[in-house]
Structures are given as C-alpha cells and as structure tokens.
Design a protein around this nucleic acid. Structure first.
Lengths: 184, 184
DNA sequence: GTCGCACCATACGCAACCGTATGGATGGAG
DNA sequence: CTCCATCCATACGGTTGCGTATGGTGCGAC
C-alpha cells in the first residue's frame, strides 16, 4: 500500500501528534518517517513547519466547535448538560495530553489567537448554562473562566502522575467539580 | 567584577529560567553565555544537564515547602487563610509561568516525583483547611485537588492571552474561586 | 620557584531538526 | 513518443544544544 501522501494526510498525522504529545511534538522529519516518506514531499505541500502548525490548529478549532455544538444541542436541563460536559471532559482526557501544553506552546508557535477563540467559546458556553440556572451574567462569566481552569488543571494533574496523587484518580472528582461550579 | 561561578550560581540562574520560562528553557550553553562563562565551567560542577535540573527542582521543592509553612503559620481562621492563599497565588502568578508547563516537562525531565510531592502537600494543606471548616475529609481531599487544578488552570490561562479573554483578568476572579471552594 | 590542584576556555564530535537545491520518477495531453 | 507538470527522494548547509577532550591559568603548599 503506497498510499499517496497528500496535504491532508500530513495535517492529520500532525494532528494526532499534537493531540497526544503537544505542538512541540509536531516535527517535520519524524512525521515524514512515520508516514514512510521524506521531507521532499512535505516541503512540496507546505512552505514551512509553521504552515503545518497553523493547519493543525485550524482543524482543532473546527473539531472543537463541532463538538461544542454537539454538546450544546444535547437536550436536557442546563444542570444535566453541564454534568454531561464535565463527565465527557473527564473521560476524554486520557490519551489527549496535547492540550495540556497548549497555552504555552501556542505562544511560541504563534497560534495563540485560535486558542483564545476556543477558550472564549468554552467560557461563554459554560457561562450561558449558568445564566440559565439563574446566575448573574458577570458572575457566570467568572465561573466559566474558573471551570475552564479546572478542566485545564485537571488535565495537567492527569499527565504523568505515576501512582502517587491517588486523589486525582478519584472517580468522584467530576461530581465534586460540578457541585463547586453550581454552588450558589 | 569577575564573580566566581560556583555551583550555586549555576543553580540559581537555572532556577530563574525555570521560574520564568519552564524547565525546557534551562539549557546549558545559553546559561553559560548569560553568566559570562562557558560550558567548561558547567561540566566541572555538574556531570550533566539532568543533574542541574534535579538541583533546580530540589531548590523549588525547598522554597515551596518553606513558603507553605509560612502561609500555614499565618494566623487567622481557616477561611481567611484560604482567601489569603488564593490572593497570594493570583498575585504571584505574573512572571512565573514556569510552573505552567511543569507537569508535562517534569515527565520528560524525569523529576515528576518532586512535582508530585509538592502537589500532594498543596492538596493536603487545602484539604486540611476545608476539614477545619467542617467538610468531610474525603470531600475535602477532592476539593483540594480541584482547587489545585483551578490554580494550575488559571496559570495556563494567564500565559500569553494577549488581550482577548478579558474575563481572565477580572480582579474578582479570586473571590469567585474562593467562593466555589468554600461552598457547602 | 615549582608542583599540583581547582577552575575554566576552546575546540571537537554527535544528534536532531529546519529549510533548500536538485535530480529523478510517473502519468496524462498532444 | 514526447513533453511537461506533479510529486517525491537524496543530499546538503545551517542552527542549537549535549557531552568530552584537552590545554591553559592562577594560587596556595612546600
């Protein structure tokens, strides 16, 4: 199988590396080796590594948005939707440590704008739910930020922790986090 | 001023780089240049870069512990101590993005153990305060984890955000976070 | 004074990557 | 068949950084 290596394959392979190991792991030569081809191909389809990174982030933003819409359109009362969101994030975290380094790497790679857009959307979505639950919009916005921070932080804590830090693996964590988010 | 470059100067200079830009930014040759010396000196005092990283983490753990004790010995009721802690973390965050990447980098650099120890101490400290406030120990532990996650996440969000994401800069954030931590 | 040791500078080899240069291969249009 | 555009492999030069080898230099002991 000599599968043609089009632009899309490059982006997809790069996307997987990003999702699993972060943007820093998106490197041209290793990627080429993994795809069974060489840099010659890459630099035909792309002008630089930066262009690949940009394409990866574009794809990320796209998929993030699609998924956000999926979640948003899930029926049910706001509290349940928020619960589902927390649960989804918690279960989806494994094998996706790429985002754990995103905020720092995005600066270095010059793609912070996309990250900020996605962050804003996430915050707004959570804040919207909280407003539906009767919170003041300002306070809901702040809680949205804190909830996003919780998610990002839990992702951090989930990486590496080899066995110590047992509390991080507590399956009740999501429930607690949700309770904190909803507390009046 | 031809200041002698002893082992300690190397560690301190490395520590500053770590605090500001993360472990990945602790690189021997740039460090040597910054200190006005060369690798020759470095490899006299250290056997490898890994040894320097280990020394940096040792210093970090030390200072973290000292500061934790400082905070712990600050008088006042638990709620106030927790408030002071959040406020301290919020204000101290600027110029210290080094920890934002720590959980990921610690794995690569082989110093996760120190990070886990510090994390555990932080969680335990917060959980202790919450128990004093009447929470169930199990629940307090979970909240400790979530609070630490909040801090780590807010650190993430604080890096880079060039102007968008205004909600992150809201000075009321710390208050909201505290309220979420204390909510019954 | 000179010997030796602590300390450092220079130069080297090695590896991982980025980006470029250049020369095939392959396949459809004419 | 031939020509040209796609697409790719190989080889190269440049950078950054690690670790080593080796040769000073200053300075206290004697």
């Amino acid at each position: 199988m000599v599968m043609a290596t089009g632009r899309d394959e490059w982006v997809e392979a790069a996307y997987e590396r990003f999702a699993e190991h972060g943007l820093a792991a998106v490197r041209v030569e290793p990627l080429a080796a993994a795809l069974g081809t060489t840099k010659g191909s890459f630099y035909w389809h792309f002008s630089s590594r930066a262009e690949l990174i940009a394409a990866v982030m574009e794809r990320w933003e796209e998929r993030e948005t699609l998924q956000a819409i999926d979640v948003a359109e899930a029926s049910g009362p706001p509290a349940e939707r928020l619960a589902a969101l927390f649960q989804a994030v918690a279960s989806r975290a494994r094998g996706r440590q790429g985002e754990a380094t995103l905020y720092v790497e995005a600066v270095e790679e010059g793609v912070m704008a996309a990250v900020e857009r996605v962050s804003q959307r996430r915050i707004d979505y959570i804040a919207g739910l909280l407003v539906e639950l009767g919170l003041d919009p300002q306070e809901a916005q702040r809680r949205g930020v804190v909830c996003l921070a919780m998610v990002l932080g839990l992702q951090q804590l989930g990486t590496g922790t080899s066995g110590s830090l047992t509390a991080v693996r507590d399956p009740e964590l999501a429930r607690t986090a949700l309770a904190m988010a909803l507390a009046v």
